[in-house]
Amino acid sequence: MIPLPNLDVIAFLVLATFAVLCGLSVILQKHAVASALSLVGVMGALAVLYLMLGAEFLAAVQMIVYAGAIMVLFVFVIMLLNAGSEQKSNRPRYFAYFAGIPALLVFLGLIANFILRELPNSASVQFGAFTQGGPAPVGRLLFTKYLLPFEVTSLLVLIAIIGAMVLAKKEID
């Protein structure tokens, strides 16, 4: 019998490839709606990766809040403003292309090297090995240890709602 390749590895590789391709598509697509949909793809892949890391509640919240609310808002605004494709700018960004991108690549190489050298024997991820990410443990911790930050974020959301309403309201003269 042929030994089956480990499903954890295959799932990670497929999802990671998908996420990186979608991420590339976010920054390379000409049209804003295409970028937004690629970002939804990244978020979906990350949600499944959260599931593999045992964070079930977060995976669901990622889909509900990020993909279902925030990105719908983005798509809505893009359609409302009819923000079509970018025009060619008269000010090319030599600095970004010839200094920013190489610097970024160097940064990426350094950090990957650092991670792989400092964490050579980090725990190997197995689906189902860590089961503390369900709604009950998360909720318990949220309302005991992190009660104050939780209340503060609720205040922040309230302020953000009021701010968004005031900003987006048409001025009536």
Binding site: N6, L119, V125
Partner: peptide, 18 residues
């Protein structure tokens, strides 16, 4: 045979750089 956590961190770094 298994994916170490560091791979996830590298993926996170790649996405951040993008």
């Amino acid at each position: 045979n298994a994916v170490p956590v560091s791979w996830y961190l590298v993926l996170s770094a790649i996405l951040f750089s993008l």
